[in-house]
Design a protein around this nucleic acid. Structure first.
Lengths: 152, 152
DNA sequence: ATAAACTACGTGTATATACATGTATTAAAA
DNA sequence: TTTTAATACATGTATATACACGTAGTTTAT
């Protein structure tokens, strides 16, 4: 669906403003699609992100700060997301003995299993949903980097 | 900041997967920047969206459903966002007498004023923050539409 | 060695998202 | 006409976001 239909608006200040709204809408659209896939596994979008990050270092443990620095949405409250994952026994949490301020996390076997299954689903979603060629995808990445070129 | 640094990840499955993450991250980045501007006015991102939508039809009244259909993030709980705007006296809410299931909303004078001020700020942000030329912005819009070409 | 500053994390509050359910009103069907 | 279904919205619960603040542990400075 075109952006104009999606938000029932036709008057954009200029192409750049439209691009801003288009980025926001497309991200919402993508997140919604991902959440639908993850629902079968009882995972939220953010819980999946944390599991993916832990997998990246597995079997090494990671502290909250390291995880937070790798999240797509930086303002997430990582300790509380982990709370839910610990309750579901997908993540193990303990205190780092070399620096007791650190709480360290690692995937459990159940966490690894559910991550593998859900990753297959998400990868499949990306492949079938986003059907842009490699060249277009690369161009898109280039333009998004350009959008973010000015630091905040 | 490059996506690779932002989420401290270098191994993407392919350019399309990277583009997906890039869209999600760029949207978060943009929302964060907008929220910072809106904070001065005591408005959240979503409250601003609702005010903008009401302005589009002003001085006509709009019902919840019409507003929801124009939101960028469709899953927002519009009645509750309006609750907060009514408390702040930026929006007036009443019942439509021709169909009592309809609750109709309109901007108050205070709502109009705060919207004008905050819109100036947001427009300025877009203009200074997103410094891509018109051609690049148009290309970006084209690619985002392509990403969303497959309906969910 | 002790005080001060910093760091990492947890907790609390307000708002928003996602989804299920309840309620009043209107429209449609038997 | 009475029942049934559909519609529009409100409300409730679990999770997440955004931000402020508290606390234990560590580092630095005096």
């Amino acid at each position: 669906m075109k952006l104009e239909e999606a938000i029932k608006s036709v008057n954009f200040k200029n192409e750049t403003h439209k691009a801003g709204l288009n980025i926001l809408y497309t991200a919402w659209w993508l997140k919604t699609s991902m959440s639908r896939e993850l629902k079968d596994f009882g995972l939220t979008h953010e819980q999946y992100n944390v599991l993916r990050i832990l997998k990246g270092k597995s079997p090494e443990e990671m502290c909250v700060k390291d995880i937070a620095g790798r999240m797509i949405e930086k303002s997430s409250n990582v300790p509380r997301i982990i709370d839910r994952l610990v309750i579901k026994k997908l993540v193990k949490r303990s205190t780092d003995l070399t620096d007791k301020r650190h709480t360290v996390m690692s995937l459990t076997q159940a966490g690894l299993t559910i991550l593998d299954l859900s990753t297959k689903k998400i990868n499949g979603l990306f492949d079938t949903l986003i059907e842009v060629g490699d060249t277009d995808a690369a161009k898109l990445n280039e333009l998004l980097e350009l959008v973010r070129a000015n630091e905040t």
